[in-house]
Design a protein around this nucleic acid. Structure first.
Length: 420
DNA sequence: TGGTCGTTGGATAT
DNA sequence: ATATCCAACGACCA
Protein backbone atom coordinates (compact mmCIF):
# COMPACT_ATOMS: atom_id res chain seq x y z
CA UNK A 1 0.00 0.00 0.00
CA UNK A 2 2.71 2.47 0.90
CA UNK A 3 5.50 1.24 -1.31
CA UNK A 4 3.95 1.34 -4.72
CA UNK A 5 5.27 4.76 -5.67
CA UNK A 6 8.24 3.54 -7.64
CA UNK A 7 5.95 1.49 -9.86
CA UNK A 8 3.65 4.47 -10.29
CA UNK A 9 6.57 6.71 -11.17
CA UNK A 10 7.81 4.33 -13.81
CA UNK A 11 4.39 3.80 -15.26
CA UNK A 12 3.92 7.53 -15.41
CA UNK A 13 7.27 8.36 -16.92
CA UNK A 14 6.79 5.70 -19.56
CA UNK A 15 3.43 7.28 -20.36
CA UNK A 16 5.06 10.67 -20.63
CA UNK A 17 3.57 12.05 -17.42
CA UNK A 18 5.79 14.05 -15.13
CA UNK A 19 6.06 12.52 -11.69
CA UNK A 20 8.76 13.40 -9.20
CA UNK A 21 10.81 10.34 -8.37
CA UNK A 22 9.01 9.47 -5.18
CA UNK A 23 10.52 7.37 -2.49
CA UNK A 24 7.91 6.31 -0.02
CA UNK A 25 4.49 7.85 0.22
CA UNK A 26 4.87 8.64 3.92
CA UNK A 27 7.69 9.80 6.15
CA UNK A 28 6.96 7.20 8.81
CA UNK A 29 5.73 3.64 8.49
CA UNK A 30 2.18 3.50 9.85
CA UNK A 31 2.47 -0.19 10.68
CA UNK A 32 5.63 0.48 12.68
CA UNK A 33 3.98 3.21 14.74
CA UNK A 34 0.91 1.08 15.41
CA UNK A 35 3.10 -1.80 16.55
CA UNK A 36 4.97 0.50 18.93
CA UNK A 37 1.61 1.47 20.43
CA UNK A 38 0.60 -2.09 21.21
CA UNK A 39 -1.27 -2.74 17.97
CA UNK A 40 -3.57 0.27 18.15
CA UNK A 41 -3.18 3.55 16.32
CA UNK A 42 -2.65 6.65 18.47
CA UNK A 43 -5.78 8.79 18.57
CA UNK A 44 -4.11 12.07 19.42
CA UNK A 45 -1.52 14.03 17.51
CA UNK A 46 0.56 14.39 20.65
CA UNK A 47 0.88 10.68 21.22
CA UNK A 48 1.51 10.17 17.52
CA UNK A 49 4.48 12.55 17.74
CA UNK A 50 5.90 10.70 20.71
CA UNK A 51 5.63 7.35 18.99
CA UNK A 52 6.98 8.64 15.70
CA UNK A 53 10.08 10.35 17.06
CA UNK A 54 12.62 11.50 14.51
CA UNK A 55 12.35 10.13 11.00
CA UNK A 56 15.23 7.97 9.79
CA UNK A 57 15.08 8.12 6.03
CA UNK A 58 17.83 9.02 3.65
CA UNK A 59 16.77 10.41 0.32
CA UNK A 60 19.98 9.55 -1.48
CA UNK A 61 19.81 5.89 -0.48
CA UNK A 62 16.16 5.56 -1.33
CA UNK A 63 16.52 7.17 -4.73
CA UNK A 64 19.02 4.44 -5.61
CA UNK A 65 16.29 1.85 -5.05
CA UNK A 66 14.41 3.23 -7.98
CA UNK A 67 14.27 0.97 -11.01
CA UNK A 68 15.54 2.70 -14.14
CA UNK A 69 13.11 5.15 -15.72
CA UNK A 70 11.02 3.51 -18.40
CA UNK A 71 11.13 0.07 -16.81
CA UNK A 72 7.52 -0.71 -16.14
CA UNK A 73 8.10 -4.35 -15.35
CA UNK A 74 5.10 -6.41 -16.31
CA UNK A 75 2.73 -3.45 -16.26
CA UNK A 76 0.83 -2.83 -19.44
CA UNK A 77 1.03 0.71 -20.74
CA UNK A 78 -2.36 2.15 -21.56
CA UNK A 79 -3.54 5.43 -22.93
CA UNK A 80 -4.34 8.05 -20.34
CA UNK A 81 -8.13 7.91 -20.02
CA UNK A 82 -10.13 10.92 -21.06
CA UNK A 83 -12.24 12.90 -18.60
CA UNK A 84 -15.33 11.49 -20.24
CA UNK A 85 -14.09 7.93 -19.77
CA UNK A 86 -13.53 8.72 -16.10
CA UNK A 87 -17.17 9.73 -15.79
CA UNK A 88 -16.74 13.49 -15.75
CA UNK A 89 -19.21 15.26 -17.97
CA UNK A 90 -17.87 18.35 -19.65
CA UNK A 91 -19.70 21.37 -18.37
CA UNK A 92 -19.55 25.00 -19.14
CA UNK A 93 -17.51 26.75 -16.50
CA UNK A 94 -16.34 30.35 -16.50
CA UNK A 95 -13.49 29.84 -14.07
CA UNK A 96 -11.05 26.99 -13.68
CA UNK A 97 -8.53 26.00 -11.07
CA UNK A 98 -5.47 28.27 -11.18
CA UNK A 99 -3.27 25.38 -10.07
CA UNK A 100 -1.40 23.55 -12.80
CA UNK A 101 -0.36 19.94 -12.45
CA UNK A 102 2.93 18.13 -12.79
CA UNK A 103 6.29 17.71 -11.13
CA UNK A 104 7.86 20.87 -12.55
CA UNK A 105 5.05 22.99 -11.16
CA UNK A 106 5.25 21.18 -7.82
CA UNK A 107 8.96 21.93 -7.52
CA UNK A 108 8.47 25.52 -8.65
CA UNK A 109 5.78 26.01 -6.01
CA UNK A 110 7.92 24.34 -3.38
CA UNK A 111 10.90 26.60 -4.14
CA UNK A 112 8.68 29.65 -4.26
CA UNK A 113 7.28 28.88 -0.80
CA UNK A 114 10.65 27.99 0.67
CA UNK A 115 12.36 31.11 -0.71
CA UNK A 116 10.62 33.21 1.95
CA UNK A 117 12.50 31.81 4.91
CA UNK A 118 10.79 34.07 7.43
CA UNK A 119 7.39 32.97 6.19
CA UNK A 120 8.38 29.31 6.53
CA UNK A 121 9.87 29.87 9.98
CA UNK A 122 6.85 31.78 11.31
CA UNK A 123 4.13 29.68 9.70
CA UNK A 124 1.24 28.98 12.06
CA UNK A 125 -1.65 27.18 10.44
CA UNK A 126 -4.55 28.42 12.55
CA UNK A 127 -3.52 32.00 11.84
CA UNK A 128 -3.94 31.76 8.08
CA UNK A 129 -6.62 33.74 6.27
CA UNK A 130 -9.23 31.44 4.68
CA UNK A 131 -10.58 34.28 2.53
CA UNK A 132 -7.24 34.89 0.80
CA UNK A 133 -7.62 33.67 -2.78
CA UNK A 134 -5.39 35.88 -4.91
CA UNK A 135 -2.44 34.74 -2.83
CA UNK A 136 -3.51 31.74 -0.71
CA UNK A 137 -2.32 31.67 2.89
CA UNK A 138 -0.78 28.20 2.57
CA UNK A 139 1.64 26.51 0.16
CA UNK A 140 -1.04 24.70 -1.87
CA UNK A 141 1.30 21.75 -2.23
CA UNK A 142 -1.34 19.22 -1.16
CA UNK A 143 -2.49 18.37 -4.72
CA UNK A 144 1.11 17.56 -5.67
CA UNK A 145 1.60 15.39 -2.59
CA UNK A 146 -1.65 13.63 -3.37
CA UNK A 147 -0.69 12.82 -6.96
CA UNK A 148 2.89 11.87 -6.13
CA UNK A 149 4.33 14.87 -7.98
CA UNK A 150 6.06 15.87 -4.77
CA UNK A 151 7.69 13.53 -2.29
CA UNK A 152 6.65 14.15 1.32
CA UNK A 153 10.14 13.14 2.42
CA UNK A 154 11.78 15.61 0.05
CA UNK A 155 9.41 18.34 1.25
CA UNK A 156 10.20 17.44 4.86
CA UNK A 157 13.96 17.57 4.27
CA UNK A 158 13.70 20.95 2.51
CA UNK A 159 11.76 22.38 5.45
CA UNK A 160 14.34 21.08 7.92
CA UNK A 161 17.06 22.74 5.83
CA UNK A 162 15.25 26.07 6.09
CA UNK A 163 14.86 25.66 9.86
CA UNK A 164 18.62 25.10 10.17
CA UNK A 165 19.30 28.55 8.78
CA UNK A 166 16.91 30.62 10.90
CA UNK A 167 17.17 31.70 14.54
CA UNK A 168 13.80 30.39 15.62
CA UNK A 169 10.85 28.70 14.02
CA UNK A 170 7.39 27.45 14.89
CA UNK A 171 6.80 23.84 15.91
CA UNK A 172 4.21 21.11 15.43
CA UNK A 173 1.28 21.06 15.42
CA UNK A 174 1.06 24.54 13.89
CA UNK A 175 4.29 24.71 11.88
CA UNK A 176 4.74 23.68 8.26
CA UNK A 177 6.55 20.51 9.30
CA UNK A 178 3.64 20.04 11.69
CA UNK A 179 1.29 20.01 8.70
CA UNK A 180 3.23 17.19 7.07
CA UNK A 181 3.05 15.31 10.36
CA UNK A 182 -0.74 15.74 10.47
CA UNK A 183 -0.74 13.94 7.16
CA UNK A 184 1.31 11.15 8.74
CA UNK A 185 -1.04 11.05 11.72
CA UNK A 186 -4.12 10.55 9.53
CA UNK A 187 -2.37 7.93 7.39
CA UNK A 188 -1.45 6.03 10.55
CA UNK A 189 -4.94 6.07 12.08
CA UNK A 190 -6.59 5.35 8.73
CA UNK A 191 -4.25 2.39 8.15
CA UNK A 192 -4.96 0.94 11.59
CA UNK A 193 -8.73 1.48 11.81
CA UNK A 194 -11.18 -0.94 10.16
CA UNK A 195 -14.04 0.86 8.41
CA UNK A 196 -12.26 4.18 8.87
CA UNK A 197 -14.37 5.74 6.11
CA UNK A 198 -17.72 4.81 7.62
CA UNK A 199 -19.65 5.49 10.80
CA UNK A 200 -20.99 1.96 11.14
CA UNK A 201 -18.46 -0.56 12.29
CA UNK A 202 -15.87 2.12 12.94
CA UNK A 203 -14.70 1.77 16.54
CA UNK A 204 -13.26 5.26 16.78
CA UNK A 205 -16.37 6.93 15.33
CA UNK A 206 -19.20 8.24 17.48
CA UNK A 207 -22.53 6.77 16.41
CA UNK A 208 -24.79 9.72 15.70
CA UNK A 209 -28.29 9.73 14.15
CA UNK A 210 -27.53 12.20 11.41
CA UNK A 211 -30.52 13.20 9.37
CA UNK A 212 -31.11 12.11 5.82
CA UNK A 213 -32.23 15.39 4.31
CA UNK A 214 -31.31 15.35 0.64
CA UNK A 215 -32.71 18.83 0.14
CA UNK A 216 -30.38 20.36 2.69
CA UNK A 217 -27.50 18.33 1.27
CA UNK A 218 -28.29 19.56 -2.25
CA UNK A 219 -28.46 23.18 -1.08
CA UNK A 220 -25.03 22.80 0.48
CA UNK A 221 -23.54 21.01 -2.51
CA UNK A 222 -24.95 23.48 -5.01
CA UNK A 223 -23.93 26.59 -3.06
CA UNK A 224 -27.42 27.81 -2.28
CA UNK A 225 -27.64 27.65 1.50
CA UNK A 226 -28.33 31.38 1.57
CA UNK A 227 -25.22 32.01 3.66
CA UNK A 228 -22.81 33.80 1.32
CA UNK A 229 -19.71 32.74 3.26
CA UNK A 230 -20.73 29.08 2.97
CA UNK A 231 -21.89 29.33 -0.63
CA UNK A 232 -18.78 31.21 -1.80
CA UNK A 233 -16.62 28.44 -0.36
CA UNK A 234 -18.68 25.79 -2.14
CA UNK A 235 -18.31 27.71 -5.40
CA UNK A 236 -14.55 27.87 -4.89
CA UNK A 237 -14.59 24.12 -4.32
CA UNK A 238 -16.45 23.56 -7.56
CA UNK A 239 -14.36 25.96 -9.64
CA UNK A 240 -10.92 25.55 -8.13
CA UNK A 241 -11.07 22.17 -6.41
CA UNK A 242 -9.25 23.79 -3.56
CA UNK A 243 -10.11 25.96 -0.57
CA UNK A 244 -8.21 27.01 2.52
CA UNK A 245 -8.30 24.57 5.39
CA UNK A 246 -10.40 26.87 7.59
CA UNK A 247 -12.87 27.39 4.75
CA UNK A 248 -13.25 23.61 4.61
CA UNK A 249 -13.85 23.67 8.35
CA UNK A 250 -16.59 26.27 7.97
CA UNK A 251 -18.58 24.32 5.40
CA UNK A 252 -17.99 20.91 7.00
CA UNK A 253 -19.13 22.17 10.39
CA UNK A 254 -22.15 23.84 8.78
CA UNK A 255 -23.21 20.65 6.97
CA UNK A 256 -22.86 18.36 9.97
CA UNK A 257 -22.86 19.28 13.66
CA UNK A 258 -23.15 23.04 13.25
CA UNK A 259 -26.35 23.64 11.33
CA UNK A 260 -27.76 21.04 8.93
CA UNK A 261 -26.97 17.83 10.88
CA UNK A 262 -26.37 15.93 7.64
CA UNK A 263 -24.19 12.81 7.72
CA UNK A 264 -20.48 13.53 7.37
CA UNK A 265 -20.16 10.71 4.83
CA UNK A 266 -22.29 12.73 2.40
CA UNK A 267 -20.02 15.74 2.67
CA UNK A 268 -16.98 13.49 2.47
CA UNK A 269 -18.20 12.08 -0.84
CA UNK A 270 -18.61 15.53 -2.35
CA UNK A 271 -15.18 16.68 -1.18
CA UNK A 272 -13.69 13.43 -2.46
CA UNK A 273 -15.10 14.12 -5.90
CA UNK A 274 -14.38 17.83 -6.18
CA UNK A 275 -11.10 18.48 -4.35
CA UNK A 276 -7.95 18.34 -6.43
CA UNK A 277 -6.07 17.24 -3.31
CA UNK A 278 -8.60 14.74 -1.97
CA UNK A 279 -6.76 12.05 -0.10
CA UNK A 280 -8.62 9.10 1.39
CA UNK A 281 -7.00 9.15 4.83
CA UNK A 282 -6.88 12.92 5.23
CA UNK A 283 -10.33 13.64 3.85
CA UNK A 284 -12.05 11.02 5.98
CA UNK A 285 -9.95 11.96 9.00
CA UNK A 286 -10.92 15.60 8.76
CA UNK A 287 -14.62 14.83 8.28
CA UNK A 288 -14.49 12.66 11.37
CA UNK A 289 -12.78 15.57 13.12
CA UNK A 290 -15.14 18.35 12.03
CA UNK A 291 -18.29 16.35 12.68
CA UNK A 292 -17.03 15.63 16.22
CA UNK A 293 -17.20 11.93 15.41
CA UNK A 294 -13.58 11.30 16.34
CA UNK A 295 -10.35 13.07 17.40
CA UNK A 296 -12.19 16.27 18.35
CA UNK A 297 -15.23 16.34 20.60
CA UNK A 298 -15.96 19.91 21.61
CA UNK A 299 -19.24 20.14 19.80
CA UNK A 300 -20.10 23.40 21.51
CA UNK A 301 -17.53 25.16 19.37
CA UNK A 302 -19.43 25.95 16.22
CA UNK A 303 -18.22 28.14 13.39
CA UNK A 304 -20.59 30.98 12.67
CA UNK A 305 -21.45 31.11 8.95
CA UNK A 306 -21.73 34.88 9.40
CA UNK A 307 -19.05 36.15 11.75
CA UNK A 308 -16.24 33.68 11.04
CA UNK A 309 -15.64 34.91 7.50
CA UNK A 310 -16.30 38.55 8.39
CA UNK A 311 -13.48 38.42 10.93
CA UNK A 312 -10.98 37.92 8.09
CA UNK A 313 -12.66 39.73 5.23
CA UNK A 314 -14.96 42.49 6.53
CA UNK A 315 -15.53 43.90 3.05
CA UNK A 316 -16.56 40.51 1.66
CA UNK A 317 -14.16 40.54 -1.30
CA UNK A 318 -13.97 36.75 -1.29
CA UNK A 319 -17.77 36.49 -1.50
CA UNK A 320 -17.91 39.15 -4.23
CA UNK A 321 -15.44 37.16 -6.31
CA UNK A 322 -17.02 33.72 -6.04
CA UNK A 323 -20.64 34.90 -5.79
CA UNK A 324 -20.76 37.81 -8.26
CA UNK A 325 -24.53 38.12 -7.78
CA UNK A 326 -23.67 39.73 -4.44
CA UNK A 327 -20.89 41.94 -5.76
CA UNK A 328 -22.81 45.18 -5.20
CA UNK A 329 -24.24 44.27 -1.80
CA UNK A 330 -22.97 46.76 0.81
CA UNK A 331 -20.46 45.26 3.18
CA UNK A 332 -22.82 45.80 6.14
CA UNK A 333 -25.13 43.16 4.69
CA UNK A 334 -22.96 40.91 2.55
CA UNK A 335 -22.59 38.18 5.18
CA UNK A 336 -26.34 38.21 5.94
CA UNK A 337 -28.01 39.74 2.89
CA UNK A 338 -31.53 38.72 3.98
CA UNK A 339 -31.30 41.49 6.59
CA UNK A 340 -30.78 44.15 3.95
CA UNK A 341 -33.76 46.47 3.43
CA UNK A 342 -35.51 45.92 0.13
CA UNK A 343 -34.28 49.28 -1.13
CA UNK A 344 -30.70 48.15 -0.55
CA UNK A 345 -31.36 44.81 -2.26
CA UNK A 346 -32.89 46.62 -5.23
CA UNK A 347 -29.95 48.98 -5.52
CA UNK A 348 -27.56 46.02 -5.33
CA UNK A 349 -29.56 44.27 -8.06
CA UNK A 350 -29.94 41.24 -5.85
CA UNK A 351 -33.33 40.45 -4.36
CA UNK A 352 -33.07 37.83 -1.67
CA UNK A 353 -35.41 34.95 -2.42
CA UNK A 354 -35.27 35.67 -6.14
CA UNK A 355 -31.66 36.33 -7.21
CA UNK A 356 -29.98 34.76 -4.20
CA UNK A 357 -31.65 32.27 -1.82
CA UNK A 358 -32.95 32.93 1.66
CA UNK A 359 -31.09 31.02 4.38
CA UNK A 360 -32.05 27.33 4.46
CA UNK A 361 -31.95 27.38 8.26
CA UNK A 362 -31.64 30.02 10.96
CA UNK A 363 -28.14 29.64 12.31
CA UNK A 364 -28.97 30.67 15.88
CA UNK A 365 -31.76 28.14 16.32
CA UNK A 366 -30.26 25.43 14.09
CA UNK A 367 -26.91 25.48 15.88
CA UNK A 368 -28.58 25.27 19.29
CA UNK A 369 -30.64 22.32 18.11
CA UNK A 370 -27.46 20.68 16.87
CA UNK A 371 -25.77 21.22 20.23
CA UNK A 372 -28.66 19.51 21.98
CA UNK A 373 -28.70 16.61 19.52
CA UNK A 374 -24.96 16.11 19.86
CA UNK A 375 -25.29 16.09 23.65
CA UNK A 376 -27.95 13.39 23.48
CA UNK A 377 -26.02 11.34 20.92
CA UNK A 378 -22.87 11.55 23.05
CA UNK A 379 -24.82 10.44 26.12
CA UNK A 380 -26.15 7.45 24.19
CA UNK A 381 -22.65 6.47 23.07
CA UNK A 382 -21.39 6.77 26.61
CA UNK A 383 -24.28 4.81 28.12
CA UNK A 384 -23.86 1.95 25.64
CA UNK A 385 -20.07 2.15 25.72
CA UNK A 386 -19.94 2.82 22.00
CA UNK A 387 -22.01 -0.25 21.09
CA UNK A 388 -24.92 1.65 19.57
CA UNK A 389 -27.23 -0.43 17.38
CA UNK A 390 -29.16 0.77 14.37
CA UNK A 391 -32.32 0.46 16.43
CA UNK A 392 -30.82 2.72 19.11
CA UNK A 393 -30.06 5.29 16.45
CA UNK A 394 -33.54 5.05 14.97
CA UNK A 395 -35.06 5.62 18.41
CA UNK A 396 -32.96 8.71 19.04
CA UNK A 397 -33.71 10.06 15.58
CA UNK A 398 -37.43 9.68 16.31
CA UNK A 399 -36.94 11.55 19.57
CA UNK A 400 -35.22 14.37 17.70
CA UNK A 401 -38.18 14.60 15.32
CA UNK A 402 -40.66 14.63 18.21
CA UNK A 403 -38.70 17.37 19.99
CA UNK A 404 -38.82 19.46 16.84
CA UNK A 405 -42.57 18.97 16.48
CA UNK A 406 -43.08 19.98 20.10
CA UNK A 407 -41.17 23.20 19.66
CA UNK A 408 -42.82 24.12 16.39
CA UNK A 409 -46.43 22.89 16.58
CA UNK A 410 -47.33 24.51 13.29
CA UNK A 411 -44.74 25.63 10.80
CA UNK A 412 -44.93 29.36 11.09
CA UNK A 413 -43.26 31.76 8.78
CA UNK A 414 -39.59 32.10 9.56
CA UNK A 415 -38.77 35.54 10.77
CA UNK A 416 -35.22 36.67 10.27
CA UNK A 417 -34.15 39.05 12.92
CA UNK A 418 -32.81 42.33 11.73
CA UNK A 419 -29.38 43.20 12.98
CA UNK A 420 -27.88 46.68 12.90
C1' DT B 1 -9.10 7.65 39.02
C1' DG B 2 -8.32 12.39 38.76
C1' DG B 3 -5.88 16.10 36.47
C1' DT B 4 -4.25 18.22 32.25
C1' DC B 5 -4.68 19.55 27.79
C1' DG B 6 -6.27 20.13 23.09
C1' DT B 7 -3.52 23.29 15.42
C1' DT B 8 -8.00 26.74 13.95
C1' DG B 9 -15.36 29.21 18.35
C1' DG B 10 -17.97 33.12 19.77
C1' DA B 11 -19.10 36.97 22.45
C1' DT B 12 -17.69 40.38 25.39
C1' DA B 13 -14.59 42.87 28.16
C1' DT B 14 -10.45 45.72 28.38
C1' DA C 1 -4.49 42.67 20.34
C1' DT C 2 -5.24 39.80 24.66
C1' DA C 3 -8.12 37.90 28.67
C1' DT C 4 -12.07 35.65 30.40
C1' DC C 5 -16.27 33.30 30.17
C1' DC C 6 -19.26 29.86 28.14
C1' DA C 7 -19.93 24.66 28.72
C1' DA C 8 -17.64 20.75 28.56
C1' DC C 9 -15.73 16.45 25.52
C1' DG C 10 -12.22 12.41 25.61
C1' DA C 11 -7.15 10.87 25.02
C1' DC C 12 -3.55 10.46 27.67
C1' DC C 13 -0.79 9.95 31.75
C1' DA C 14 0.67 10.01 36.56
Amino acid sequence: MFNSCAAVANYASAAGIEVFSPVSHTIFDPADIIEKNGGRPPLSYQSFLKLAGEPSFSLSVELSWMPPVGDVGRCEILQVPTLKELGYVEKHQDEFTPFRGGESEALRRLRESLSDKEWVANFEKPKGDPSAYIKPATTVLSPYLKFGCLSSRYFYQCLKDVYKNVKRHTSPPVSLVGQLLWREFFYTVAFGTPNFDEMKGNKICKQIPWNDDDKLLAAWREARTGYPWIDAIMVQLRKWGWMHHLARHSVACFLTRGDLFVHWEKGRDIFERLLIDSDWAINNGNWLWLSCSSFFYQYNRIYSPISFGRKYDPNGNYIRHFLPILKDMPKEYIYEPWTAPLSVQTKAKCIIGRDYPKPVVLHDTASNECRKKMGQAYALNQRLNGRVSEEDLRKLRRKFDEDEDKQEPKPRRQRQKLIK
